[in-house]
Design a protein around this nucleic acid. Structure first.
Lengths: 103, 103
DNA sequence: TTACTAATTAACTAATGTGTTAAATTGTGA
DNA sequence: TCACAATTTAACACATTAGTTAATTAGTAA
């Protein structure tokens, strides 16, 4: 499946869109994400797997926990490309922000 | 269902995304759209109905034909809002283009 | 009215998606 | 090793989706 197709399909589910919004504040473990929703851990796990396959989030294991982090460039890139293709008159301009130095 | 949910769900299907791209060049009748795909007219008709319910396209009847036109503001508005909510660091700026006078 | 064209709606099938509970995996620490 | 915690995978049920063909609606024109 094409990358854009995976991404749009991932964005079709409201729970997955909400997960992305929760991650806007920074990375969260799978369990922390589960605690913010009222569905089971396996259901969330599958949503996370779909988001990861679409490269909308990335995974990092730390001991027992698996932390998920947003990949904002995937989202902004795909939506921006689609907007450019479908409504080039409504120009979408993406401003790249300097990465904050970590540590 | 919420407007954004309808829109993201509409965008999940590759045929519907392609229809939006075909409409980028200007309005088309249902039949003209059908001729650009290899699926049946009823299938296209249903896709158009979903796009219209999501306000991504508008309908106009002219005699026998029904013409469909893109509603670019719905698309740009929804995707822009979502990007702002999920990756506010990647600022998305929408530049409104003056409408061309018709006739 | 009748015939014709454009398009939609109806009825159905096959595939996909999303949730559940139970079982398996992976890592930590006594 | 054993027990425990965090998470994923497996197996299943149910709802939704997207396609098909057949039937219906709506408009044009003889």
């Amino acid at each position: 499946m094409k990358a854009a197709a995976r991404i749009f399909q991932a964005l079709a589910d409201p729970t997955r869109r909400q997960i992305l919004q929760e991650l806007e504040g920074g990375e969260l473990s799978a369990g922390e994400i589960v605690s913010r929703f009222s569905i089971s851990a396996p259901a969330i796990s599958r949503h996370l797997s779909i988001l990861e396959t679409a490269a909308l989030v990335s995974q990092r294991r730390e001991g027992n926990r698996i932390y998920y982090d947003l990949e904002p460039e995937t989202l902004a890139g795909t939506l921006g490309d689609f907007l450019s293709a479908v409504c080039p008159t409504q120009i979408v301009q993406r401003r790249q922000i300097k990465k904050r130095r970590t540590s």
